[in-house]
Simulated assay, not measured.
Amino acid sequence: MTERGNNALWRDRTLLKIGPSQLHWDGNGLTIDIDEKAAVIPRAVRGRIRVTPEVLGQRRFRLDPQGRHVWEPLAPRSRVDVAFSDPDIAWSGHGYFDANHGSEPLEDGFADWQWSRAHLKGGDTAVIYEGKLRSGNDFGMALRIGRDGNAEVCEMPHGVVLPRTGWAIDRLTRADSAAAARVRATWEDTPFYSRTALSSRMFGEDVHAVHESLSLDRFRSPIVQWMLPWRMPRRN
């Protein structure tokens, strides 16, 4: 993927274009058309992702007392259909779609965060979001989002320390007991971010969960900032 300048950006109420790629909302679902060059080896990445919400979130959440950072679980449960020509892959399954936005860079507001999501029987979605603000204060919430999109705030489950990533990023999740979660696969392992598949137990159910760890302290370090253009080239 690439980071691009203002002249490569265009949007209206239903369409967002970033260079040759775009996202389009048609009222029933989100179509993501990708036409990019991979890094570090510059090979083509072309394809389409269709995200069809099965549940639409009804709330947004402030992550800090001043409200500088807002998180929205826009579609806590969705149907996802993927069809790529480069590389030649296709699959369908269930997914999740959220958004963060705010009035300052993430690294100015947070030191780190941990997030996880699991789909429960009956159509509910469990979401855990926690971390440390740049001020040093902790934040966190455990949510059970129903099929109507309403989010019930629940007691935070037990903390479970997971093995560190290959880049030595700390991973923490929540489960019904301290021994109820384990790493199934590490999908993404970078100097400041990881995405992990877990086997866990949440709200009394055995689940497959998706988990992410983000270190903004690591992200803002000069050496990582120097490395980023090699992994994510800048283009005007």
Rank of each mutant, 00 (worst) to 15 (best):
L63V: 13
G57F: 07
V82A: 00
Y96D: 07
L74P: 02
R60A: 12
R77K: 03
E36M: 09
D98Y: 05
G57Q: 03
D33W: 01
T52F: 06
V80P: 01
R48P: 00
R79A: 10
R79V: 04
F97S: 06
V45P: 02
A75R: 01
W71C: 02
A38Q: 07
A83F: 13
E36N: 06
G47D: 09
D81G: 07
V40N: 03
P42Q: 11
I34Y: 01
Y96I: 10
W71S: 02
R59F: 09
I34D: 02
R59H: 09
S85M: 01
G67N: 01
D35W: 01
R43F: 14
I89G: 00
W71T: 11
D33L: 10
V55T: 15
D33Q: 13
I41D: 08
F97L: 13
F97H: 15
R68E: 12
W91T: 00
A83Q: 15
F61G: 02
I41N: 13
A75T: 11
I41S: 11
F84T: 04
T31R: 12
I89K: 05
R77L: 15
P73L: 11
R48L: 08
W91C: 13
E72V: 15
Q66D: 14
S78C: 09
D81V: 15
P65L: 05
K37D: 12
N100A: 07
D86I: 00
W71A: 04
K37S: 12
Q66A: 15
G67T: 01
S85T: 14
W71I: 03
E54V: 06
F84N: 05
G67R: 04
P87Q: 08
A90H: 14
D35A: 14
D86P: 01
I89F: 14
